[in-house]
Design a protein around this nucleic acid. Structure first.
Lengths: 200, 200
DNA sequence: AGGTCGATGTACCGATCAGTACATCGAGGG
DNA sequence: CCCTCGATGTACTGATCGGTACATCGACCT
């Protein structure tokens, strides 16, 4: 009775990661519902038995994909974990922009892309919310640090400010996605950080 | 050879509208790919022959749904068409918030919900972009009016400011959707309008 | 009365969907 | 050496998918 097996072997881990990574790529560009398990397996060369060896069903694969997105996002923004000064926020914004600069791929947030599709689905809404909170929490933590150092007004609300920064970031990413132009993201981040700095 | 028929009869128009409206509702909450034609037809009591009488295929139905979203959005924000003063922008923001207040339904933008899923699909990306531009164009037009009246700095860029306002609005809607809390939208709109007013 | 044409009902098709059954492979340990 | 067990290959199922074929209905015009 293996509900979902954990990869024990190194080879097994590789296969599992390939399935999740391939599914993440396809769902990022084509959406979750439009990404069938058969397509994922064909794209990464795995068989159906692997898929259902590591995941009970498609829902659990989607769960893993959302986790993969969060990991990927946080890894690409290392400054997010070391926010201790206003200059660090500038560095962070620059890292975010760098992710989406260059000729490759659509300008979009993986979590944002699936949020529209899954945001009202009781199976994934909570996990999605949690992923966003983890992300936003890094910003809030940085603002707490700055407040403790006296670089942010004592009566400022780090959580609410972090949420507002996420609003600008997510909106910037979404508009940049539709427009295929990074300008909205640049302006959104600039506005967010200017607003934060104004609270000092 | 009727590629797609236009509704001639009053009854035909009703049926066509019912199909589009029902599809719009289902796609809004469950996504486009997860909304099958059979489900739409069953939900609105129409038969398959109606669907393919008025639409060549599912793609054309999705096109109509996107148009329906835009119409619905613009109709719910009448102030957007009469922006002639800063107070009108406040009225507009209040109208946007009113749409999503109250107990019913998810807090989300229909266009934004499908943008993540269809934004990279060459069949719909352009139409989606056009819909957003129409929406944003109303804001830009209002800003032009204010600039002509001297209420906005002469060197301000109405198009770019309107785009930034859309960033805040869309980000606010998306975060409000995931959080199931209207606060991010309130804060996002407040920030956007404060930024606009600062350009006077 | 009969003809036209938009609107509608119903049965069907091949493809694809998520998920299952079951056999086999192959490395590590006794 | 062979047994165990994770990893893998393959064949299959019933349901649902988008789309088609074709018959019929019924309002309006002549």
């Amino acid at each position: 009775m293996d509900a979902q097996a954990v990869a024990v072997t190194e080879q097994g881990r590789r296969t599992r990661d390939a399935i999740v990574g391939t599914a993440a790529d396809l769902m990022y560009t084509h959406g979750v519902a439009a990404t069938s398990i058969d397509k994922v397996l064909k794209a990464c060369g795995a068989g159906k038995s692997q898929m259902y060896h590591y995941f009970k069903n498609k829902d659990q694969l989607v769960d893993a994909v959302i986790g993969h997105y969060l990991d990927h996002i946080l890894a690409a923004q290392p400054a997010l974990g070391e926010l201790a000064d206003w200059a660090d926020f500038d560095r962070w914004a620059e890292q975010v922009l760098d992710i989406h600069r260059g000729p490759a791929g659509p300008i979009a947030c993986p979590l944002g892309n699936v949020a529209g599709e899954l945001g009202d689905d009781p199976r994934f809404a909570e996990l999605l919310d949690k992923a966003y909170r983890t992300w936003e929490g890094k910003l809030a933590h940085g603002l707490h640090v700055l407040r403790d150092k006296g670089k942010l007004r004592a009566d400022a609300d780090p959580e609410r400010l972090a949420q507002l920064a996420m609003v600008c970031l997510q909106g910037g990413l979404q508009m940049a996605h539709v427009r295929r132009d990074i300008t909205p993201l640049e302006d959104g981040l600039r506005l967010a950080i200017a607003h934060l700095r104004r609270q000092s």
